[in-house]
Design a protein around this nucleic acid. Structure first.
Lengths: 195, 195
DNA sequence: CTAAAACGAGTGAGTGTTCACTAAGCAGGC
DNA sequence: GCCTGCTTAGTGAACACTCACTCGTTTTAG
């Protein structure tokens, strides 16, 4: 586990990967397009990274790190509002354009992960972490008698699946009108967990 | 809407696309790999399709058609068992290898859809159709007083999102142990809809 | 204190390979 | 003898990556 804090330039390139992915998608990502989004030339990228794959991996580590922290740094302390806050962050808003694009990009990398080993580790860590955070909240809620005696892991997985699934038809396909009822339904689902 | 029933050879090529996608993913899909999965040479593919994009589109139309029909041809008549049956088909089993790979491939195409127009129409039709089927079941259930007065569209979207989301961490990342509790939780969610 | 050497960061111009796609031709059935 | 279906052999473009070199800064040596 080489943590290797990226230099400023490395971070700039990783951000260029994000922009290029948002514009063109992973399947059409090229080093030329990454360079175009950064202040460097194509060859210059290779001074900081060994390969295109390494650049994508750098972006992915940054993105998954951010998504992980977003769910770890919840403000509410009590289980119920805490779970609602988590849900709020998990269901990305349609008009948050950069975040929407980034989520779609991560989804494309996720779908490609079975065919590219370097993508697997950060994604696995992201999902495991998110799952653990949600599970912990539900467990606490059960202990404090605010939630019914449900399967904490199942509930966590169900919520997480619903949130990531919404990225597909809501964010990627642009089915705008489905977002609000979806989020409302997630809230109702949480209601149904209460004692 | 040119329905254009594919010839036998065209269908064989579309199936070769499926196999190639399962093996290599969309980002690494090449015409050479498609040819390798079929009985034709690379150039031969172009006698039947104008472009690589057209071949992918042909696969996608077949795949989405199948996924649509799978949810339209439910056996149970009454809302509750019907919704459970729909759920059963929506949550793909881990050990159903070809289906699993196909679902992942469709997910990769879905994530790439914002950057490739030819992918959008069949995917939009698939999701709309699935959503409509689920919504109808819930609506019927409400009318027949077997489900509570919930937001049918929201419930449909929530179930569909959970199912497609599970493709990500369950199927693509290989988190095998999360599948069963997820499916169980979907069942519990349906329980919570009952009057 | 200064000149030379070394180094970090980057560029412009390639290189070999892979890719999507095409042109020309050929076998066999009507 | 002419379509239909397919092949062999390309073609130019795009791609990931490399190389020789530059230019400013920093380190070292006398």
């Amino acid at each position: 586990m080489t943590e290797a804090v990226p230099t400023e330039t490395q971070a700039e390139i990783a951000d260029a990967v994000r922009k290029a992915l948002a514009k063109h998608g992973y399947a059409r990502l090229t080093t030329a397009k990454i360079a175009a989004e950064s202040s460097k030339t194509e060859a210059g990228l290779y001074y900081h990274y060994d390969s295109k794959d390494a650049m994508v991996a750098a972006f992915l580590e940054g993105a998954t790190g951010f998504l992980k922290r977003q769910l770890e740094d919840l403000e509410a302390a009590d289980p119920e509002p805490r779970l609602r806050e988590a849900c709020d962050r998990l269901f990305v808003k349609f008009d948050d354009e950069p975040r929407r694009r980034t989520n779609i990009a991560v989804m494309e990398l996720l779908a490609h992960a079975p065919h590219n080993e370097t993508l697997q580790a950060p994604l696995l860590e992201l999902e495991s972490s998110n799952l653990a955070v949600l599970e912990k909240i539900v467990e606490d809620g059960i202990e404090q008698d605010v939630f019914r005696e449900v399967d904490a892991r199942g509930v966590a997985a169900f919520l997480l699946a619903a949130a990531s699934g919404s990225t597909g038809f809501y964010l990627a396909l642009g089915m705008e009108d489905i977002g609000p009822p979806l989020h409302t339904q997630a809230e109702s689902y949480i209601d149904s967990l209460l004692v």
